[in-house]
Design a protein around this nucleic acid. Sequence first.
DNA 1: CGCAACGATGTAATCGATTGCAAAAGAGGA
DNA 2: TCCTCTTTTGCAATCGATTACATCGTTGCG
Lengths: 344, 344
Amino acid sequence: MTKRFPKIRDVAEAAGVSTATVSRALSAPEMVSRDTRAIVLKAVEATGYRMNHAARNLRRRQAGGIVVLVPNLANPFFAQILSGIATAMAPSGYNVLIADTRQADAGSSMLDYLHNNRADGLIVLDAGLPEEVLSAGQGRAFQPPIVFACEWLEGDDRASVTIDNAYGARLAIDHLVALGHRRIGHVMGPPDNILTLTRAQGTRAALAAHGLAVREGWFFAGDFSLGSGAAAAQRWLAMDDRPTAVFCASDAMAGGFVGALHRAGVRVPGDVSVVGFDDIEIAAHLVPALTTIAQPRRLIGETAAQKLLDLIRKTGQPGGVRDVLPVELVVRESTGVPARRSPR
Amino acid sequence: MTKRFPKIRDVAEAAGVSTATVSRALSAPEMVSRDTRAIVLKAVEATGYRMNHAARNLRRRQAGGIVVLVPNLANPFFAQILSGIATAMAPSGYNVLIADTRQADAGSSMLDYLHNNRADGLIVLDAGLPEEVLSAGQGRAFQPPIVFACEWLEGDDRASVTIDNAYGARLAIDHLVALGHRRIGHVMGPPDNILTLTRAQGTRAALAAHGLAVREGWFFAGDFSLGSGAAAAQRWLAMDDRPTAVFCASDAMAGGFVGALHRAGVRVPGDVSVVGFDDIEIAAHLVPALTTIAQPRRLIGETAAQKLLDLIRKTGQPGGVRDVLPVELVVRESTGVPARRSPR
DNA sequence: CGCAACGATGTAATCGATTGCAAAAGAGGA
DNA sequence: TCCTCTTTTGCAATCGATTACATCGTTGCG
């Protein structure tokens, strides 16, 4: 910001009107007569004027942007969601700020975002943030509207855009049972995560509904990552009494699981069937192509963004509306009828 | 922004000093005596004061943020880079804005970002933007510092952080040749992309250096995506005279290529060896695990961010420094000695 | 003892756009 | 022609923090 930009006053002079008129011609065209509007627009063109957002935001007492809190930016799962958010936000003129909640200085800067004037609203993709951050500003400070996406806070009535995780789990289990599996395991996400909980609970419920055993030993710990899927595979390999099918709470874990199994000489779906969750793009291209529960990631992002805009503009529902988007089973190659007998 | 926040004046009153002193105590502590500083800090605490960024930015004539121009946010390749950028930017206090350059309203809003006061600098991951956008503002307007990352503009001397793509290609080809391959193909990225060009050119050069044929029919069109890799596989399958090894310009394409081949009954590396490029996280977990050229994505992001900060602060080199980060070959399972004879 | 120099603080102008209020300009209507 | 009502415009205050410049003590040194 070294040279001088034309400011609104320059445009006003060029057009022979007042700054107020220029301002109105640009942000409330209907308040200005057709003729002056044309003159002003021409002057804007001629001077190359561009509005100064800092000034507008100061005067309007707003931030001019929203922030998206992502648990781990490096995780490609969020890419599609972010894209959806960006798409939906583009026409609004709001900036989209991105912050990684698991970063070094997370604590303080998160508060900074939340507390005031850095953002007019936020989309939270990480319900695992410290309570005091998410519920901050209840006291003296003002808290901007929040929309949770993917994850949410139990017992909290703020707006959210999620999927029915238990139903997704049920689809996976039903599919496996229909294929003839009776011995079904589950690779879980990180502990305490709401998605982990609901998917695991959904799995348990579906198993029970089919009158199948729920063996705790077949519930493998994981954290949604590729590596944790591979680690679960090692534990599966070390078992005497293995499940013939495994439902993984994320495609990444399913990929890691299948890969590690393959390297140990176990075939999918020949020896064990695997179902993933998410339907990330590569799922269809894996070897074998992954059977999975598809969730509409881009739509989740777009919906969350739209919801946030409504909240900011105070249009639409007063708040607290929880959208639940549909999931569906996508059958590919990684599931099949169970082997005559468990290998080994 | 409905309720009233404590402003600097409130803090000043609470502390019994002037607003100037409060401002200095907060952003230039050394200008204020130890005692007053303590008093001010206490008053800040007591009032719950948080600075208004819009006001500061207006006064300082800056934007308070940088923007990252991403060609396709949904592409997970960029996730790691964004993460690196976010990490490096966090301590600076600059906001990180993200914009998808292939979005609907791209043209106009990109200009908006570039031209002024929306950003103090930008990191461009898409050198394919229209010239008039990237070179905009040379005339009357001021253009903020730019750092190119991954991609760059040929003949442009602005700062950039890249890798040696030709060398990466050479590593891949050398590896294949060392395994005994003489018939080597290449799946390319999108036309006119600088990465496509340099990698293809590097491939040609390496091939020539080994005295091997450069057959145009073995250079498959692609666009870095999974689908285009799978499409290339179809073309490979339809050939009479196939290469025994294929170097793909991205891991995504390699994944798509291998997957499609597998579904057609062709084995990797038994029937054909495949090398990727990028070393995305899943590469190590694929079946077969992908041999690839690793590039330090997170480091690219961090370096670009640091460079941009230097440019903004006018520290460091005056500008135009081009960093080239190292790449390396990672040998996994997708490459092996060529089959005795080409299948079919 | 007196003056220069320095450090700490306060005063007030400033950044650039928006908007409440008032004045001016039309538009009808009697 | 005069008056009321509506639409367009302009004036000037305002948003909240920063910072150039001025002020007021202090300290140091000749």
